[in-house]
Design a protein around this nucleic acid. Sequence first.
DNA 1: GTATATTGTTGCCAATACAGTAACAAATAG
DNA 2: CTATTTGTTACTGTATTGGCAACAATATAC
Lengths: 139, 139
Amino acid sequence: MSASTKLSTSVKALSLLATHSEQALNSAAIAAQIGGNASKLRRLLSLLSKQNIVAARKGKEGGFVLQKKPDTITLQDIYCAIEDQKAFHLDVHTGSAEDEQQNIRTNNFFIDLFSEIQVEIETKMKEITLQDIIEKTKS
Amino acid sequence: MSASTKLSTSVKALSLLATHSEQALNSAAIAAQIGGNASKLRRLLSLLSKQNIVAARKGKEGGFVLQKKPDTITLQDIYCAIEDQKAFHLDVHTGSAEDEQQNIRTNNFFIDLFSEIQVEIETKMKEITLQDIIEKTKS
DNA sequence: GTATATTGTTGCCAATACAGTAACAAATAG
DNA sequence: CTATTTGTTACTGTATTGGCAACAATATAC
């Protein structure tokens, strides 16, 4: 699952939970609503629960509930919870180059550049809350 | 090959060509210098030649030469030449959701967001020239 | 004109990663 | 105790990727 798909799937699930705050929704119910596989969803939601974005309850009447108010959950929070890898990262290319030092310097240039871009993306994602998305996607 | 690896490999090759403007370098020579496989390099360089960033000459004493001045080649030019796909794009998730309309609205939200981010990245890449990178990675 | 060198492209094969599902132990509520 | 649900692992078929090798097309040198 690509990072972008994980992110949008997570947001769909969290939006649904936000509108059903009175009861826990289990993975099968969420999957039916937003589409996709319950097992796959559980894998995502368990990551979100480790960051206390949702709470997971096992057993009868169990399922998932939102643990924070939607206007305190940012896209950045969600992204970090589900994805360990940076959005922009260099797969450093280490070949047996004659000028290995030049290779390293160029790699470092790109590592720095991608870090800068990463910061900009994170800044943007910090400014967007789940609440924002819910309002923008209201019918 | 990931987009980031393609980009850094291309820059390494172009930097090398920039310092050998008097003669054409063939793919084997470039591969020896920067590391990696000659055949793979040719695939990248042929894409760059289609955008007239390098010129390719076949036959004896053939190879590749830079076709533009380093300070007129931007990272954005290179990226577009070698990668058709946007850096940030949503793999839209189309499941059989009960509320398909909500799904679509959420997907559209992310498509818009990623487009914005894409524009920012492109802006950044347009500001960086091959010349800049050569100077910054000088030993 | 001929021989030679080089690109540009295709095909192949192994290795790796991924998607989707199923299965099941652990936990929990009633 | 029983039923249910999470959390995780395992499995299986399918794409994707990487690295080469091969070769036709092409251009150059002589």
